[in-house]
Design a protein around this nucleic acid. Structure first.
Lengths: 362, 362
DNA sequence: CACAGCCTGTTAAACGTTTTACAGTAAAAC
DNA sequence: GTTTTACTGTAAAACGTTTAACAGGCTGTG
């Protein structure tokens, strides 16, 4: 019963060539005659030979694996990214190994270590904080690497791919402001995360410029249920705003759940601008107006940069910034002049508190 | 600049021991003295040594990797599963490498081959068809393996973990029937997939027994947008049913989207029972009544079985079946007696067509 | 005291590839 | 006609581990 593994030797023997030739046929490192190639292929097929990745990798040092580290595998945004990456990786002959840091900086480090132990030919990282994960610093030089989505603010020493988060916030705010909304709440996940901070900044700046006061910013975390509770709690003890901007797909869910629980209709009395674009957003009676992130483009750009690096490109790091767009559906209403005045007075009433909340953020 | 990789040799030299000892310290295969262990650990830390997986795996034949093959990485159900598996795998010191077959039987084979090339210590497979993927048959004996969710019908020669699909269909149907619905459409993804077929079977049997006729079964595929179009198309040319049972989370989305597009309210005039339980289902004014699959339990059961197998358990294959439950929210209405009669007459009218559609399924 | 048995550590031989260095042959250049 | 050059194939040496076989120092027992 002891079925020995079929190795390159067996194939070589059966095809009547040296093992080096077999290797060359499979790796394509050196040209080999057409008929010999044929013979080798046939022999391999007959024995159902598969090259052993471990051996191959050990000798060559090359892995044909890329590690993908994301903060949360339950968040559609990240899994969509992973899904796209998997497709492109497969097309280029790479396998991906995924790890989730579960938004824990300690776990991030440990997961990173295990990813590095694979000696992958590249890494795509969505860090869980602004800090460049320790242990990665001495790898920058040798290991192709792309940071996506949550890129450390300021110039980076690695390639980065992200959306224009500040602009995303602006777009959402502008839409609401143009329709007369002044009393706007910004539902962030966690302002410690730089892209979120940027989105808040973009929205806040525009709202302040137009409405004369910073919006209230609340943090709902990255878990839909807990965020729902948090927002419910907030709604209980504050005046109801005329509009909410949710800055992630999870906070969008939290916002909608809380409003649904209180049987507050959308868009009247409360308008909502969500984030991301997923099928469930249009599977509702009042479709959700939302900021669309170009997930496919983000994934494509990240992979493209990584591919370049993996094939030896050593040019200075590049920061790719992609644009978001507004997907208008039915969850934002136009405020009548009367309602606007009403909203305005809310602003005045809440001015002080608003400022405090916003200050906490900046 | 030529930073040579730091190997076990370097650590051994620095700690003043043999490489075998270093290996033993890290693998724990043989006991080593406490102080020596300390010395080795320190040396390793100083040099920031990491064992090379490739070398380790080549020599030992053991991989500490499990391959996970899913049909679609854009489907929340599968990514939730992957997410849970990743957590448990990590806890047990395994890494996972994921591959998507994208519901293509050819791709499934090829992805499987690449997974096997890793010589993983185990495999968790959600097949994309009833057929056991070719190339896997000669691995059954040596490679620990668990099939999940889409298990081939009838007894299997591998461990399987799945829900009671037939019962799931029944539960949905019973709920509707009890509330007086008779004119029910079953929105399946693809009846070629055995669990779907089972769900249809369960629902159909009960509906036939109670309403006297099989329900209409329509196939909406596994893509939300295309499913929406398909259902829209169907709705255009058929009498509107009083209720819809959606048999996957994607068909649930398609159903809801189509109804929303036609501005048909839920639950009146059309009630809906969805599938799976995700945050977006309660983030709506009329929360969605749905069949809840215990995803965490499925993942846990699959991992547990795999873990057992990987540690040498050779008992005969086990088929684990988990129960679903009905999550009642607001998307199903109780039909008044008058409406019931009305629905009843529809049944009679559509009897013939209904039967044809259902026949196509069985 | 001698000897078996245990404990801990070492040496050296794998594991299955890739790759370097080399050899042989055929074609091209002198 | 000899020397290059180009092209293909091979033998053998890595790659960094794990592990089988072995060795030496204890302890406990007869």
């Amino acid at each position: 019963m002891s079925e020995r593994r079929v190795t390159i030797k067996d194939v070589a023997a059966r095809a009547g060539v040296s093992i080096a030739t077999v290797s060359n046929v499979f790796s394509g490192n050196k040209p080999v005659n057409a008929d010999l190639q044929e013979r080798v292929q046939k022999a391999a097929r007959d024995l159902s030979y598969q090259v052993d990745r471990a051996a191959s990798q050990l000798r060559s040092g090359q892995a044909k694996v890329v590690g993908v580290l994301v903060p949360d595998l339950d968040d559609v945004f990240f899994t969509s990214l992973v899904s796209q990456l998997e497709v492109m990786a497969q097309k280029d002959g790479y396998d991906i190994i995924v790890a989730s840091s579960r938004d824990d900086i300690g776990l991030e480090q440990s997961r990173l270590r295990t990813l590095l132990a694979w000696r992958p030919s590249g890494l795509i990282v969505i860090p869980c904080s602004d800090a460049v994960p320790a242990g990665l610093d001495n790898e920058f030089a040798r290991l192709p690497m792309v940071f996506a989505d949550r890129v450390p603010p300021g110039g980076s020493i690695v390639d980065t791919v992200a959306i224009d988060n500040c602009e995303a916030g602006e777009i959402a705010a502008r839409h609401l402001l143009e329709l007369g909304h002044r009393d706007i709440v910004v539902a962030a996940s966690n302002v410690a995360i730089s892209p979120i901070r940027e989105r808040v900044r973009g929205a806040s700046a525009l709202i302040r410029a137009t409405a004369g006061a910073d919006p209230t910013v609340i943090e709902l975390g990255s878990n839909a249920e807990r965020g729902t509770e948090a927002f419910l709690h907030w709604l209980e003890r504050h005046k109801r705003p005329s509009a909410v901007i949710a800055l992630t797909n999870v906070t969008t869910l939290s916002t909608l759940s809380a409003l649904a629980r209180l049987r507050i209709d959308i868009p009247d009395p409360v308008s909502v601008v969500g984030f991301d674009d997923y099928p469930w957003m249009s599977a509702r009676k009042t479709g959700l107006t939302a900021i669309r992130q170009p997930i496919a483009e983000i994934a494509a750009a990240a992979w493209e940069r990584l591919r370049r690096r993996m094939s030896g490109d050593a040019s200075p790091p590049l920061g790719t910034v992609l644009q978001t767009s507004l997907q208008v559906r039915d969850s934002v209403r136009e405020l009548s002049p009367a309602a606007r005045d009403d909203a305005q007075s809310h602003d005045l009433l809440q001015d002080q508190e608003t400022k405090t909340a916003a200050n906490a953020v900046h």
